[in-house]
Design a protein around this nucleic acid. Structure first.
Lengths: 117, 117
DNA sequence: AGAAATTCTGTAGATTGTCTACTCCATAGA
DNA sequence: TCTATGGAGTAGACAATCTACAGAATTTCT
């Protein structure tokens, strides 16, 4: 009966932007820290590869959803800090809805109530 | 406060196989019917395009997770009926776990409990 | 002082699974 | 005969992830 879950799960395409925007809602952060945060709060289930992370950050910046500036990190290294723009907040809300809707839809198919008239 | 959900949501990559396998758990069905079923039970939130559907079916068949045979549909048209193989059942279980794990991980990041020691 | 590990950003290219936009054929009904 | 519906299919575009690199700066270890 017991079913050990996979130790790690690949990201489904289209979810990384949401994860990043959500992370930045708590305040500005640099790429490395964003990845660590996602990994940590997901209890190590999600892992963001650098080859996904940086293109995503540049994508979001190009869309105007986040803005960046160079600064120094806690450990004293140069780091590019990103923060949510007003447009980014709207986008975050929209992607939240999208995710909620999608995962609800999946639930309907996977566990149908099956009560029809 | 009220937030109307999108009338339709694009599939996230990697979820179609699961939806198809899950649908076939109820018994053999042909492609067209599978698509309709997913669309209907998801309350029209998910829509499977034929350009996604048929390649997916062929993919699953090539993997040995489903098997096919020609027959006649309810409406008397030639239709290719697919059924779950034993390997397909295992795959379905695995993908279920994968989805559950992933969506739980998303939940952790999106709605963190935030209680740390 | 020098070596090694860590932190941080980044790119190139492959892969994969969606999507849009078609085609084709058969049957049913007007 | 014409149209709507049911059903299977392909071609090619597209986009986001992945693996696998590289490189620079700083701290830590020896």
């Amino acid at each position: 009966m017991s079913q050990k879950p996979p130790s790690r799960v690949d990201l489904l395409q289209g979810t990384l932007d949401l994860l990043i925007l959500r992370t930045l809602r708590a305040g500005p952060a640099h790429g490395h820290a964003i990845a660590k945060h996602i990994q940590h709060t997901s209890e190590e289930l999600l892992q963001v590869e650098t080859g996904s992370l940086y293109p995503a950050l540049h994508r979001l910046e190009a869309q105007g959803w986040i803005a960046a500036s160079w600064d120094l990190s806690d450990k004293g290294k140069r780091a590019r800090y990103y923060r949510l723009t007003p447009a980014g907040r709207k986008q975050l809300a929209a992607e939240q809805v999208r995710w909620n809707t999608f995962s609800r839809a999946m639930g309907l198919v996977l566990n149908p109530t099956d009560q029809e008239a």
